[in-house]
Amino acid sequence: MAMTPSRARGLLLTPAGLWYAALLLLPLAVVLIFSFGERSPIGGYAPGFTFAQYANLPARFAAFRNTLTLAPIGTLAALLIAYPLAYFLAVKVTPKWKTLLLVLVIVPFWTSILIRSYAWIFLLGGKGIPALLAHLGLEDIRLLNTPFAVLVGIVYGYLPLMVFPIYVALEKLDKRLLEASADLGTPPWRSFLQITLPLSMPGVLTGCMLVFILLMGEFLIPAILGGGKVFFVGNALVDLFLQSRNWAFGSAVAVALVVVMLVVVALYSRAVKRFGATRDDTGLM
């Protein structure tokens, strides 16, 4: 007996569905249930049904504000540094050097972000860059434990995530389009603005989305390079789960974070649709 196609497809999707349920929906459901519960007197979770945790969300307003300020700035800064790098790698570098330079971009990822962030403590600390600046007559510049240090750490930590999508987009950009643009009377820099940049937008959007989403949940870099003075939602979550062990409130904060991210992703998909014109099967070969 032959299965109907839709039934066959349903069966084929079962493993994926189970995977999805187990790895994504189940933990999310637990968090959702917790968020309506209460903190037990000694910490942890006590069952219940209350909106008290959500009502208390304004208590973490500052954390959300800090995150929603630094995450876009960090994403933008990463983009501004990553784009020229990706462009250089994809367009300017000969194939011989390309592999080597790409590996150099990845290599730092082989070390824990913790260790790499600690390296920045020394670079930004009193005996690092500020000491060099002091030699140049700029006395008493504080870099470590400032929002700037967090920004540096963020850009450094997430740079490869931004570089690679842009690199891929630029790499597959048909160079003949640039010849066509030049042929139609466009000087190189205007060709970049009118052809290269718009056609690399999918890579830019992917990179921004990756970095932005991960930044929204970041806690390590603010804790290490912000000296505990820069407080993200991620830090609030760590404290709520591991210090005050207020799991119910922590879950509500986590749900709120997910909601914020969903809004961002929704805006993102709209942006993608706008640039969705870029498809590969356009006769570019």
């Binding site: 010849e179 056609l199 640039f275 870029t278 498809r279």
Partner: peptide
């Protein structure tokens, strides 16, 4: 020029 694979701007 009319390019071999047209090189039309996809965006």
């Amino acid at each position: 020029m009319v390019f071999q694979h047209y090189a039309l701007f996809p965006h």
